[in-house]
Amino acid sequence: MRLLQKVIVKQILTEKSKDALFNRFQEQKEQLHKEIDQLRFQMKKIEKNKKWSSSLLESRFEKEQESRLEKIRILDFQMDQLQKLPVGSELVEKEMEGVADVKVGDRWEDVNAAKTIIVKDGIIVEIR
Rank of each mutant, 00 (worst) to 15 (best):
I12H: 00
Q78H: 13
I46K: 05
A20L: 08
Q26M: 09
F41H: 14
E126L: 13
L39M: 13
R73G: 03
K18L: 06
Q5R: 12
L21C: 09
L82V: 03
I72N: 00
E109W: 05
G105M: 10
V99C: 03
R24V: 11
R40P: 00
K120P: 06
D19R: 12
F77Y: 07
R2V: 06
R128F: 09
K71A: 01
V92K: 12
Q38T: 14
L3C: 06
Q81F: 00
L21M: 14
Q38A: 15
Q65C: 03
I123L: 14
G105L: 08
L75Y: 03
D80I: 01
I8F: 05
F41E: 14
W108F: 11
K84F: 05
F77K: 12
F77G: 07
R128A: 09
I118F: 07
E27N: 14
I36F: 04
D76R: 13
A113I: 02
E97W: 04
V104K: 09
E35S: 12
D19E: 12
E62T: 11
E66I: 06
V119C: 06
K51P: 01
K10L: 00
F61S: 03
I124L: 11
L4P: 07
L3S: 11
E58Y: 08
R24S: 15
G98S: 13
L91F: 02
E97I: 04
L56D: 09
L75F: 04
R68F: 02
L91P: 01
K6N: 10
R68Q: 09
L3P: 02
V99Y: 05
A114Y: 05
Q42R: 12
G88W: 02
K50T: 08
K45R: 15
V87M: 10
F25E: 06
G98I: 07
R107N: 13
N23L: 12
E90P: 03
E93R: 09
D110W: 04
Q26V: 09
V125T: 12
K84C: 04
E64Q: 15
F22A: 09
I123M: 13
E58D: 14
